[in-house]
């Protein structure tokens, strides 16, 4: 019953969304005014190389083929899907001739490592503290915390990150000023390398967690205050159930439900990278890669990264949909 009535239509929808998303991503850069072939050639010319016209024509033909720009859009489109199923996004234009998949493979661990950790961490911290502060909203500490968060939360991320960097890496030299690891160190599974990575990740992570947790805090506090007024919370109080139990099992447990959906959506956004973080802390990652790709009209790279994030977001939404009945027994698929 569940499989036929719910799972199969839901899976079909899942694939349809991915298909449409990737199709749109294929066509949009083709409407952009930059021509990558001309750009590459003018780049070579700008270095002062003399090219004779015959060679130029040959190069145009070669590049067009390499970039998958041969033939009509229809033909390109079919070719694009054929290659996609082999995990081949073509080669990058702006870091010619590295394959796109290689570039993504290098950037992905940094982005996922940093953003997955910070997204989950800020969700947990923000929700728990926000929940407790919402339940005890007449306490002094709760009101002070509320004021502090109200101050932190609207700070522009760029300013906040820069402030942290100046304070903790320049004025007090506690953390490295830039990079994902010390220059010249090769990735390895040794303790000292991992510690080095963590040390470099600390400031970017701190900037993301503080602002992220602040916004989860506010959302969670608001939801909790609404749940507080629910009949079942009042009933638990009438029954003399212990405060801690009411707070966690009755109030926060119920307030978490909408936040679970929001967490899934934020996790899906990870694969677009965190551009400003990467710029401020010179941190390697997908954000920078995507930014350069857009700037240089690098179709293949744009498509590689966006296709990946489309798959990630839709997959996470599907997972949450399927897992939701575990969190909320009122939801049941038949």
């Amino acid at each position: 019953m569940f499989v036929k009535r719910y799972l199969i239509p839901r899976l079909l929808q899942y694939f349809l969304v991915i298909f449409l998303g990737i199709t749109i991503v294929f066509f949009i850069p083709r409407f952009a005014p930059t021509n990558p072939v001309q750009r590459t050639i003018s780049e070579i010319r700008s270095r002062g190389t003399y090219l004779n016209p015959a060679d130029v024509e040959q190069m145009v033909a070669d590049l067009t083929r390499l970039y998958g720009l041969e033939g009509s859009w229809g033909e390109q489109y079919i070719e694009f899907w054929r290659k996609l199923f082999k995990g081949d996004f073509g080669i990058s234009f702006f870091q010619f001739p590295t394959p796109v998949i290689e570039l993504i493979k290098t950037a992905l661990p940094w982005t996922v490592g940093l953003l997955f950790t910070t997204t989950v961490l800020s969700w947990v911290i923000g929700n728990i503290i926000g929940g407790i502060a919402g339940y005890r909203n007449n306490r002094l500490w709760s009101r002070i915390l509320d004021g502090v968060v109200m101050f932190i939360r609207p700070l522009p991320y760029y300013i906040f990150a820069l402030g942290l960097l100046i304070l903790l890496a320049y004025v007090f030299r506690l953390f490295p000023i830039s990079g994902g690891a010390s220059i010249g160190r090769l990735p390895s599974f040794t303790l000292s390398y991992i510690l080095d990575v963590l040390k470099h990740a600390f400031l970017p992570a701190l900037s993301l967690v503080v602002l992220g947790a602040a916004s989860w805090f506010q959302a969670s506090k608001l939801i909790v205050q609404n749940v507080n007024a629910e009949d079942f919370v009042q009933y638990a109080q009438l029954g003399g159930i212990k405060e801690r139990k009411i707070m966690f099992k009755y109030v926060i447990r119920n307030a978490m439900l909408p936040q679970i959906t929001n967490l899934a959506l934020s996790l899906g956004q990870i694969l677009s990278g965190a551009l400003i973080t990467e710029i401020v802390f010179s941190y390697p990652g997908l954000g920078n890669l995507l930014f350069s790709a857009i700037n240089t009209g690098d179709y293949n790279l744009i498509m590689g990264i966006t296709a990946l994030s489309i798959v990630a977001i839709t997959t996470l939404v599907l997972m949450i949909d399927l897992l939701y009945p575990l969190f909320d027994p009122r939801i049941k698929y038949k």
């Binding site: 638990a236 099992k249 009755y250 119920n254």
Partner: peptide, 10 residues
């Protein structure tokens, strides 16, 4: 109004 006095998720 006992309709909503029990915690819905337990």
């Amino acid at each position: 109004g006992a309709m909503s006095i029990f915690n819905p998720v337990i």
